[in-house]
Deep mutational scan, measured.
Amino acid sequence: GIPATNLSRVAGLEKQLAIELKVKQGAENMIQTYSNGSTKDRKLLLTAQQMLQDSKTKIDIIRMQLRRALQ
């Protein structure tokens, strides 16, 4: 079985993952909103794209940590 310490770690990672998935969803929504907007929305679009990139990276890292914890 999986050690108890790993189980609480997994629960924490799953919570983090859920949050990051919401951030990713929000960033994707912002990108959709701003991509057909005016030029003043360009900065917001770039910010949203950066957020999305960061979020995807975090999600990958969390998933990797989850896999390790579940081994």
Rank of each mutant, 00 (worst) to 15 (best):
34 Y>G: 03
32 Q>E: 14
14 E>I: 15
27 A>K: 01
46 L>Y: 07
15 K>D: 07
7 L>N: 07
52 L>E: 01
48 A>L: 12
3 P>D: 11
10 V>W: 02
54 D>Q: 06
40 K>P: 07
15 K>T: 05
48 A>N: 01
30 M>K: 03
55 S>I: 06
35 S>N: 13
41 D>I: 02
3 P>C: 15
71 Q>F: 05
4 A>F: 01
7 L>K: 13
21 L>Q: 05
30 M>I: 06
22 K>T: 06
67 R>S: 09
33 T>C: 15
35 S>Q: 12
49 Q>E: 05
41 D>E: 06
42 R>W: 14
67 R>Q: 12
22 K>I: 08
51 M>C: 05
8 S>P: 07
50 Q>S: 05
14 E>P: 01
58 K>N: 05
24 K>I: 07
1 G>N: 11
13 L>T: 00
47 T>P: 02
29 N>L: 15
17 L>D: 00
45 L>H: 02
16 Q>C: 12
37 G>W: 01
1 G>Q: 10
60 D>N: 14
37 G>V: 05
32 Q>W: 11
21 L>N: 03
44 L>D: 04
46 L>E: 14
69 A>M: 10
24 K>R: 07
62 I>Y: 02
24 K>P: 00
6 N>T: 05
11 A>Q: 09
63 R>G: 02
53 Q>S: 09
3 P>M: 06
7 L>Q: 08
26 G>A: 14
54 D>N: 08
23 V>F: 08
26 G>H: 15
16 Q>M: 11
28 E>Y: 06
24 K>L: 11
42 R>H: 14
36 N>M: 05
61 I>V: 06
39 T>Y: 08
7 L>V: 13
40 K>Q: 12
50 Q>C: 11
50 Q>R: 15
69 A>Y: 07
12 G>N: 14
3 P>V: 06
48 A>P: 00
57 T>L: 12
36 N>I: 05
4 A>M: 03
62 I>E: 00
52 L>V: 03
17 L>G: 00
18 A>G: 04
28 E>F: 04
24 K>S: 06
57 T>C: 13
69 A>G: 03
35 S>T: 13
59 I>Y: 01
51 M>W: 04
20 E>W: 14
46 L>I: 14
46 L>T: 04
15 K>A: 11
64 M>E: 14
59 I>N: 00
22 K>G: 06
9 R>P: 05
41 D>P: 01
60 D>Q: 10
70 L>E: 05
20 E>G: 01
59 I>P: 00
1 G>R: 08
47 T>W: 15
15 K>V: 06
14 E>K: 14
34 Y>W: 03
27 A>T: 03
69 A>W: 04
21 L>F: 04
4 A>R: 08
37 G>T: 05
67 R>Y: 09
64 M>R: 13
38 S>I: 10
5 T>P: 10
3 P>K: 08
69 A>S: 05
67 R>C: 14
21 L>K: 04
57 T>S: 07
14 E>Q: 14
23 V>Q: 06
7 L>M: 12
27 A>D: 00
68 R>S: 11
71 Q>R: 10
18 A>K: 08
23 V>E: 04
11 A>C: 15
23 V>R: 15
51 M>Y: 03
26 G>C: 15
46 L>N: 05
40 K>C: 15
51 M>F: 04
31 I>R: 01
9 R>A: 07
62 I>A: 00
27 A>I: 15
